[in-house]
């Protein structure tokens, strides 16, 4: 969303600059018509895209997410959502970080500037962790079966099991990269609670960390956008008192993609990002 907002702002500033140049060079100002032509083109593109993506239509039942979804673009960060929307930099200032987390985040940013980012779990072909996996720019597929909803991720063949027929994880549940997830329906919203994470993954790709106390609550619901496209909205609430002073909620949208399928993804073959001494170096 923030990325799309940014794209919108860039487009707007482009429109402001380009027509002014045009005015300087030509006698007749044509600024207003160009804006409307641009926005008409954009509307047309969005509508054409929705039609293409609906080639195989999304399931009609509001609780049926089965099929393929693919987030737009590539946003390496999770940020608190606000109303109205803020720029990514402004939203970053709202992150309720503990002093230690703020220092850790700065370390991540510094190491990346040096060209040696701190090694993130996926660079070692480990499962991405949650919510880190939700930010990955690859398609996903929901599969429903008795007592369980399975989410298949193209990226590094990650698999998440959402247990619909179980109570939250018993105390002796092993800690894992993707944690232990239980789900329930609140109306037409799938609420997924995940805990029992290990502490070897990040919150987002850019800079945010978590510890063993992390719990993640996802609220996933389906809606139809104004172009007739269908999307899943995932509101992701992150709680970890060792890293954040209060729970905070980020958002990701996943348009329905009836036009594509998941491909085979091998991270393990010739892993170009394999870290050395805990940092990733460009190869």
């Amino acid at each position: 969303m923030t990325k799309r907002l940014m794209t919108g702002l860039l487009a707007a500033s482009y429109l402001l600059v380009v027509p002014l140049t045009t005015i300087a060079q030509e006698a007749a100002p044509r600024r207003a018509p160009e804006i409307s032509q641009q926005s008409v083109a954009r509307e047309k593109k969005n509508a054409a895209e929705a039609a293409e993506w609906n080639k195989i239509p999304a399931p009609q039942d509001p609780r049926d997410f089965s099929g393929v979804w693919w987030t737009r673009g590539y946003d390496r960060t999770f940020r608190p959502i606000t109303d109205p929307r803020l720029s990514p930099a402004e939203a970053a200032r709202l992150l309720p970080m503990t002093p230690n987390e703020a220092a850790s985040r700065q370390h991540h940013l510094d190491m990346e500037k040096l060209g040696t980012p701190v090694a993130d779990a996926p660079t070692q072909c480990f499962p991405h962790g949650v919510p880190r996996l939700i930010a990955s720019p690859y398609p996903i597929q929901f599969v429903y079966s008795p007592g369980m909803i399975t989410i298949l991720h193209e990226v590094a063949h990650n698999v998440r099991y959402i247990h619909m027929d179980r109570k939250p994880a018993p105390a002796d549940t092993p800690r894992t990269f993707l944690g232990y997830s239980v789900g329930r329906w609140e109306g037409n919203t799938l609420v997924v609670f995940t805990d029992h994470f290990n502490d070897r993954t990040q919150i987002d790709e850019e800079s945010l960390s978590h510890g063993l106390k992390l719990t993640v609550t996802e609220r996933i619901s389906k809606f139809t956008n104004k172009y007739g496209g269908v999307e899943l909205r995932n509101l992701i609430t992150i709680e970890d008192p060792d890293h954040y002073t209060q729970p905070w909620t980020a958002e990701r949208l996943f348009p329905w993609r009836g036009d594509i399928r998941l491909s085979e993804y091998s991270c393990e073959e010739n892993n170009r990002n394999a870290p050395v001494n805990g940092v990733t170096v460009a190869k």
Binding site: R63, D64, S66, Y144, M164
Partner: peptide, 9 residues
């Protein structure tokens, strides 16, 4: 019994 998850598939 399945925690309210309808079986669409």
């Amino acid at each position: 019994r399945d925690g309210g998850a309808p079986l669409f598939e």
